[in-house]
């Protein structure tokens, strides 16, 4: 059943786009012409809603890309396409020069698993496993996915949890933690897989305001370490501070894209202007 359509490793011929200009080397992630629609309604009311209308986006190694936009602009759908939790209808995705997705042609399940380990994801709702302790949450993907032995997995889990400041919560269950702590566990769980890129889907949107800071502090530290990150966020100040590049999504299209100084201080597109003005208060 496993059809080996494309190799996962090694750059393909023509992968290095000469038109990329500033691009230093092969991008970590490259999306081109991504389209995605959802079916809504049933029976006669059934219709297709086009959420992403041909999005192209490159994420270079070590880059921090912030994706901003109104609710319903397709931000979450876009970031979910980046690790194929959502399968696009059309377009291409390349990771480190290897083709991951091309017009409905998907990797084999085994390759998909390998790809997803390279591209980590942190969810808005944390999605910790409630029946496992904190340390087990982080260790499980290592033992049951990567195939590490339990002691090695626990060792890595403990060091990741220390990194996010939760070394004293190893034996707690997720329900015993605050939202901020749960999100930090989720970040540790993702980092334990040593991903090349981490995708953050509104990582602070489900948190009480007083807990946002501790999660942003962890993200800031990651950014300083040079981790390649894509962040969908409503925290504009944070996006301005941490990102190298801001992508403003509007109605399923990239309306404007550029360094944070441009997007937040001198946006060109009128839609970006009105969006940014709202946040400037």
């Amino acid at each position: 059943m496993t059809r080996d359509r494309t190799a996962l490793s090694g750059p393909q011929s023509g992968a290095a786009d000469p038109a990329a200009g500033l691009a230093p080397g092969v991008p970590e992630l490259r999306l081109a012409g991504i389209e995605k629609s959802f079916v809504t309604g049933r029976g006669a009311a059934r219709s297709r809603l086009l959420v992403l209308k041909g999005i192209s986006l490159t994420v270079q190694h070590g880059e921090h890309v912030a994706i901003i936009g109104r609710s319903g602009s397709g931000k979450s759908t876009l970031i979910r396409c980046m690790n194929l939790l959502e399968v696009p209808d059309r377009g291409t995705i390349e990771a480190d020069g290897a083709s991951i997705y091309q017009d409905r042609i998907l990797l084999s399940p085994k390759q998909l698993v390998g790809f997803r380990r390279r591209v980590g994801m942190v969810f808005q709702q944390f999605n910790l496993f409630p029946h496992l302790t904190v340390v087990e949450n982080v260790a499980l993907p290592l033992t049951r996915g990567v195939g590490l032995a339990q002691p090695a997995a626990l060792e890595r889990a403990v060091s990741m949890l220390s990194k996010v400041g939760l070394a004293d919560k190893l034996r707690s269950y997720p329900r015993e933690l605050s939202g901020g702590q749960q999100q930090r566990v989720a970040i540790a769980r993702t980092l334990a897989l040593q991903p090349a890129v981490v995708l953050f889907d509104e990582p602070t949107s489900a948190l009480d305001p007083e807990l946002v800071g501790e999660v942003l502090a962890v993200l800031r530290e990651l950014a300083n370490e040079g981790m390649t990150m894509v962040i969908v966020t409503h925290e504009m100040a944070f996006a301005a501070e941490v990102s190298n590049r801001v992508v403003f999504l509007d109605a399923g299209q990239v309306a404007e894209e550029g360094p944070p100084e441009q997007i937040f201080k001198a946006p060109v597109n009128p839609r970006t202007q009105s969006f940014v003005r709202q946040f400037a208060g």
Binding site: N83, L85, P109, K110, V113, G114, R116, R117, G120, M121, F123, Q125, N127, L128, F129, P130, H131, L140, P141, R144, G145, V146, A186, R189, T190, L193
Partner: peptide
């Protein structure tokens, strides 16, 4: 079992079988 559990399993690079065995079925 919330769908987020399945998605989290995929996102951390677990196979479908591993997700069911370790995450979905225990819950």
């Amino acid at each position: 079992v919330p769908n987020g559990q399945r998605e989290a399993g995929y996102a951390v690079g677990l196979s479908t079988v591993a997700i069911y065995w370790n995450i979905i079925l225990p819950q």
